[in-house]
Design a protein around this nucleic acid. Structure first.
Lengths: 124, 124
DNA sequence: ATATAATTTAAAGTATACTTTAAGTCAAGT
DNA sequence: ACTTGACTTAAAGTATACTTTAAATTATAT
């Protein structure tokens, strides 16, 4: 299957400008073009984009995502290093989760406090 | 107790410039000054900073934190609105957590894939 | 055929959140 | 007395990640 930039844009909820930007920055390999010069994304491209989105969603910087992508393009020898990056990313996600759980406690405490207060007479 | 900007900076792991910036933006109420014009933070100030840090850590924008702080300064009547903000913040945190859990699955899958591969002969 | 919509590029612009700089004041140590 | 270090300010600078613009080409619909 092949997809236009707009279709991909809608699929990943990313504006076309961002897709072009990611490609320019080397986060997505160079996309094939139709006879008209328009980009034509294939299913492999979509998988790349999926990975990039996942990494970005964990807060990985563009530069760091690029480093990972570059390793992928360098072949099998880089697998141990790639594994390290993913392991490190896993830790980051786990830390995020435990940090957010802490924040949830703070927020719940705050809510409990507000709920404890007598209702405010809004008309006064 | 009173604290210098450096002490507060170390306590919250925020550079002094950021503390001044937060104050300038109205995220922290105006801090008292010693006879020399230097800031002197008290325990109430530290509590504010704690709340600001918590909100920032959940990804709340400076502007949005300011809105909450402003409501606090407006008195009791704003409690229902403040409660709404905190409730909304709670949802955001919960969404973050479930999003991160999804990402964790993706990462674990990736790791399982790497672990399945035969070890790379690094010398070749 | 012609208007509208989608794509292309490179380059400039924007938003957010700080950080750095420069120039000055103030207090403490030698 | 003088240097060092901590603090002050306003203003400019920086980093990151896009987004917008402008000018051109191509595709689609009437």
């Amino acid at each position: 299957m092949e997809y236009t930039i707009k279709e991909v844009s809608e699929k990943f909820n990313l504006p076309p400008s961002t897709l072009r930007y990611y490609e320019k920055e080397g986060l997505i390999p160079s996309i094939q073009r139709g006879g008209n010069g328009h980009r034509l994304y294939n299913d492999t491209d979509l998988e790349w984009i999926q990975i990039v989105c996942c990494m970005r969603a964990t807060g990985m910087s563009i530069d760091y995502v690029k480093r990972y992508i570059d390793l992928c393009l360098l072949g099998e020898n880089t697998i141990p290093e790639r594994r390290k990056i993913i392991l490190c990313q896993k830790e980051i996600i786990e830390n995020h989760i435990s940090e957010y759980k802490k924040l949830l406690k703070v927020v719940n405490k705050k809510l409990a406090y507000y709920d404890m207060l007598p209702p405010v007479n809004e008309s006064l």
